[in-house]
């Protein structure tokens, strides 16, 4: 849905992150929510209706960017800048807590 204007230019991506187990390029300054908008089908699944959602507001007020970031669930992705090697996983429906 989105791409970086830096993408496709000669410059290599600033870093790689892991989205649902897949290595994905990422740029300095972008957030987890921004990555979710570039990778197809990476949005969360509503725990209420089971319908897909993508980040909506980017400023911490809508909670549609919730994701599991480095193992921490229900993290607001728009408030977390990407870091090299960061693991981002989709949150599908209501969370299962570890046994």
């Amino acid at each position: 849905m989105f791409r970086s204007v830096l993408e496709g230019s000669a410059a290599a991506p600033d870093m790689m992150v892991v989205v649902n187990g897949v290595e994905t390029p990422a740029w300095n300054g972008e957030t987890v929510a921004s990555v979710l908008l570039r990778v197809p089908n990476a949005g969360r699944i509503s725990p209420v209706s089971g319908k897909p959602r993508l980040p909506y507001c980017q400023m911490g007020v809508c909670f549609d960017c919730l994701a599991v970031v480095d193992g921490i669930a229900s993290t607001q992705g728009c408030l977390v800048p990407v870091k090299p090697g960061m693991r981002i996983d989709i949150q599908r429906g209501p969370r299962e807590i570890a046994r």
């Binding site: 849905m1 989105f2 791409r3 970086s4 204007v5 830096l6 740029w27 300095n28 300054g29 972008e30 957030t31 921004s34 908008l37 570039r38 980017q58 400023m59 728009c78 800048p81």
Partner: peptide, 10 residues
């Protein structure tokens, strides 16, 4: 915001 923080365009 996406434009400012990563140069993202729709």
């Amino acid at each position: 915001i996406l434009l400012k923080s990563g140069g993202m365009l729709p």
